[in-house]
């Protein structure tokens, strides 16, 4: 397979949430999401219950994929930052560590400059955590750790899903 399996463990999940919660405070943001490039929501903090997070994640990934396609057409590797300005709310979208998408939703209580500054710092911290996470997942895969929940899945388990 061309892509490593995306896996999240408790320890890293807590560390990641701590970083984005800090970013939420320091950037005066309303909501922050982390999304896998494939469109899967990894985590979200802030007023998440006000938004359809699953759809946001999927559209963000589509957006990043589309602008990535545009970038390649003009000879760029990718556009690492996107900014969408609305009447009240704005979206700052950036790629972290080449793999994960960081989405910051903010209004007039913050500013693009502040968000950019804080995102830059948080991105560095997140990159370190995600690098570690990838290594850990690879090692676990090699050592064929049996905590993988689907190792002993039966046909009945699968059929029950659709009953």
């Amino acid at each position: 397979m061309s892509y490593p399996q995306m896996v999240m463990y408790d320890e890293e999940f807590k560390q990641i949430n701590a970083v984005i919660e800090k970013l939420l405070r320091e950037a005066n943001a309303k909501v922050i999401f982390l999304v896998d490039k494939n469109g899967q929501l990894i985590s979200g903090v802030g007023e998440t219950e006000r938004f359809d997070t699953t759809s946001l994640a999927s559209l963000t990934a589509g957006n990043i994929a589309a602008t990535g396609g545009l970038a390649k057409l003009i000879g760029e590797k990718e556009f690492s930052i996107l900014f969408h300005e609305g009447e009240k709310d704005n979206l700052h979208i950036s790629i972290v560590g080449g793999r994960v998408i960081l989405v910051v939703l903010f209004d007039s209580r913050s500013s693009l400059g502040l968000v950019r500054l804080r995102v830059k710092k948080a991105s560095e911290e997140l990159t370190v955590i995600f690098d570690r996470l990838m290594k850990k997942a690879e090692e676990k895969e090699k050592s064929s750790d049996t905590e993988f929940p689907f190792a002993e899945i039966t046909d009945d388990d699968i059929d029950n899903l659709f009953s």
């Binding site: 995306m6 896996v7 999240m8 463990y9 999940f13």
Partner: peptide, 8 residues
């Protein structure tokens, strides 16, 4: 690729 989240 599927995404497995052990935390949630």
């Amino acid at each position: 690729m599927s995404f497995i989240n052990y935390a949630s």
